[in-house]
Amino acid sequence: MDRHLLSAADLSRDDAALVLDTAEEMRSVADRPIKKLPTLRGRTVVNLFFEDSTRTRISFEVAAKRLSADTINFTAKGSSLSKGESLKDTALTLQAIGADAVVVRHHDSGAPHRLAHAGWIDGSVVNAGDGTHEHPTQALLDAFTMRRHLGDLKGRRIVIVGDVLHSRVARSNALLLSTLGADVSLVGPPTLLPVGVESWPVEVGYDLDQALAKCDAVMMLRVQKERMNASYFPSAREYARRYGLDARRMALLPEHAVVLHPGPMNRGMEITADVADAARSLIVEQVTNGVAIRMAVLYLLLSGTPLPSPDTDLEGSR
């Protein structure tokens, strides 16, 4: 694996498989009475959050702590960032305090890429969501969750629904799932599909009912109601009717098909409450798996080696 994780495109098929397999090991740690490994003891992981995201930050924080790393939360509101300190100066500060990994969430696409490549810091950079670009650990945890329920994703049909244009989750998932050999379809109103999407390794459609009938998993994207003010769609009601997942549509799914959502959900908008809470909904499990995936990513980036073997006790591998 590369030193950084900036895009799902950075991961080869083998890399992705390694992360997913490592996450399986990490997940088993959560079932132990003491949910902690000493593997990253003495290493410093900084959560650098320029954008509010309690769930992602907590997930990374728990992951780092379970690996015994020292964690520092650096958020825009609690630091000089809100007073206008530049990304560069923030990076130099993190370098000076000896950050081994920087987990960055930023409202601008490409900010993690800048952090990784501008020569300001030596540590690993993990993209925890940048603008409308990518969110690779979300895609990894989604793939991990689906794999646990569907088995190998090769040849599996996965439908991603909604605001692809503004979704970093959709971009990372389209890339990663294609790498893993799945057949990905994007479905949404044409206004919310990016120009050039036809060059992505996916199918594109506008009819959700049609797409659901033969899929193995459906992933609903969060849609901001404010988008209707920019005429991406006429009203929340019309959006929900054409692209929301409700009980009627859920009934169109094959028996084994699962439902995912990266959260936070707009219940009643892209997904109804009865679907979100249904047995085939994996939304809560996604959160659990997020910790395991982030443990695996931090472990692989910082230790630089795969786990010795699935059977070896993790405690010895530093």
Partner: peptide, 14 residues
């Protein structure tokens, strides 16, 4: 605005 803007997540200037 083109193939690349969609991939990079940067708002397009058509």
């Amino acid at each position: 605005e083109g193939e690349l803007s969609g991939v990079l997540g940067l708002r397009g200037w058509p």
